[in-house]
């Protein structure tokens, strides 16, 4: 075990993969010599050479396309998209090409690419360094979608994502790279004092499809992913309600059994995400939960989300779901 922040944990997962599988190659904008603008790939080029860890030209569409080509011809590419907001130039390659290759070729071809990308708000990044576009990918059959939330699951989930033979979009909550975020921008803790900042140095994997029950409880099920896991944890504390907190971890395919069992137990459910509400992944979950838990529900399912607007710069704390908004939703579920 070692103390690691999320950056070090991701770096460790990448190093194990480079070590283990000679077909793993890593590339993206500024990831080679410099080690990435968030330093996730720091030191890897030096250790594994410029053909395995390299800087690409500044073109996400190109990055995605060459990843697809490499992947279908035997390599296992791990590409970084510098910010999730900049994945859209690659959207056609990902959605129309990479996601559909296995199916369109009758299973003759497939491409095991992983796209790592920092997502989410909380860094005063304005419209284009803050978005959380998971739903744009959960709506695309053929892709697996993962959203880590802490150093330990970051490493374990990235390992599984890279080893997965399907294409995976792997979101990293950039606000949590160096510490958990509890919804108070002035409180900047590190991972040092957090149990999930204890990370095994050796290789390990956390299976995709498994949610993590962060906290057990009986009165209400709160479901979140990414930075919102920690904000929800704070909200639960503030609310004084005995909530069960589920960190979804993998969004496609999601761990429906864990969620459904929890909601059947609590009879109440709050879903939290930073992305806009309309067609957010919370909508999908809410629909599925009511399909399975209708007769167990004691209150309407609540969604606490980003607004249906672009992500703002100066007023971002009024945009992101806050502990108080989440706590209010929890309380609403408790009303008779």
């Amino acid at each position: 075990m070692a103390k690691m922040n999320m950056i070090a944990a991701l770096n460790s997962a990448l190093a194990h993969q480079l070590e283990k599988d000679p077909n793993v190659v890593i590339f993206g904008e500024d990831v080679g010599y410099f080690g990435g603008v968030f330093r996730v790939t720091a030191g890897l080029q030096e250790q594994y050479g410029p053909h395995r860890v390299f800087d690409s030209p500044l073109a996400e569409g190109g990055i995605a396309a060459i990843a697809m080509g490499m992947g279908l011809n035997g390599l296992r590419p791990v590409a970084e998209i510098q910010f999730a907001d900049y994945i859209f130039p690659a959207y056609d390659q990902i959605v129309n090409e990479i996601a559909k290759l296995r199916h369109r070729s009758g299973g003759e071809f497939s491409t095991p690419v992983t796209f790592r990308t920092p997502a989410g708000g909380g860094i005063k990044g304005g419209h284009h360094h803050s978005q959380s576009p998971e739903a744009q990918f959960t709506h695309t059959p053929g892709l697996k979608v993962v959203y880590c939330s802490n150093p330990r699951n970051a490493k374990g989930l990235l390992t599984s994502a890279i080893e997965c033979n399907d294409p995976v979009i792997f979101f990293e909550p950039k606000r949590c790279y160096r510490g958990p975020f509890y919804g108070d921008p002035h409180h900047v803790p590190t991972w040092n004092d957090h149990p999930e900042g204890e990370v095994p140095e050796e290789y390990y994997a956390i299976p995709l499809e498994e949610a993590n029950i962060v906290r057990e409880g009986n009165a209400c099920t709160v479901i979140a992913w990414g930075a919102m896991v920690h904000v929800s944890e704070q909200a639960i504390k503030n609310s004084g309600v005995d909530c069960e907190l589920i960190d979804l971890q993998t969004l496609v395919p999601w761990d429906r059994d864990t969620v459904v069992n929890s909601v059947k137990k609590t009879g109440r459910c709050v879903i939290v995400h930073e992305a806009p509400k309309t067609s957010g992944f919370g909508a999908e979950m809410s629909a599925s939960i009511q399909e399975r838990c209708f007769y167990h529900l004691e209150a309407p399912i609540e969604r606490v989300t980003g607004w249906d607007t672009p992500f703002p710069h100066t007023t971002e704390w009024d945009y992101l779901p806050s502990p108080s908004r989440i706590a209010e939703a929890i309380h609403r579920t408790q009303e008779e």
Partner: peptide, 9 residues
Amino acid sequence: AISTHVSLA
């Protein structure tokens, strides 16, 4: 381009 020299691009 940030850390990427034009020779790499």
